[in-house]
Design a protein around this nucleic acid. Sequence first.
DNA 1: CTCCTTCATCAAATTATTTTGATTTATTAG
DNA 2: CTAATAAATCAAAATAATTTGATGAAGGAG
Lengths: 105, 105
Amino acid sequence: MASSTEPISTSPDLDLYAQKFKALADPKRLELLNLICRRGSVCVCDLVDEMAIPQSKLSYHLKILLNAELLHKENRGTWSYYSLNSKEMDRLLSNEICRVLSPSC
Amino acid sequence: MASSTEPISTSPDLDLYAQKFKALADPKRLELLNLICRRGSVCVCDLVDEMAIPQSKLSYHLKILLNAELLHKENRGTWSYYSLNSKEMDRLLSNEICRVLSPSC
DNA sequence: CTCCTTCATCAAATTATTTTGATTTATTAG
DNA sequence: CTAATAAATCAAAATAATTTGATGAAGGAG
């Protein structure tokens, strides 16, 4: 809706934040974020190798992080390259946590 | 494994962070944090009135937030007073998000 | 063209979380 | 003392998230 009578941005859209935190609410996905961050940009097949996780499972988790806008995705041919959305991570998390999740980024 | 040749504390306990984010991963709980923050210190019965939510449900969510150390709890007689653990919130979240979740705190 | 790789998606099975209503313990008030 | 209130906990039911293995679409390699 977002009608013109609604208070502008007084509603911080708790659902939207909840979605982002939900994406972060899993150790596997935190590990994934960390790995992607360290690699800069990685394709799924490399992640499968490094994480020792079935590909469909990986795609599932990547999608959750992507939907939460914590990742960027770029398609090159049949490959999909994922990278961290640092801007969004920074916007969300403290420096301390960013450093923990993304050391040397 | 965890052999002695492994780098110490390379794992910053992702499980622990995941737990905290899981606590934040629910719009009802974010609303709850916000309300508690604005009140400073509130007992469960007041929260039941303000949130229009069954008491057992509220206690369930409070427990999750407490376990994640996002809240403090103080018992006075039969009353339980909950308040925000601002230190932990600040440690975890960006200023922007802290402000959104805890306006005027 | 044919075969192979990459990756997303799907449906079913599994597992985890949440909701509900009842019960329980402790405390307070009359 | 007895009544009533505060809040935690419990078990069952309802929902939601995750895992798994299979399939399919699309592009690359020979």
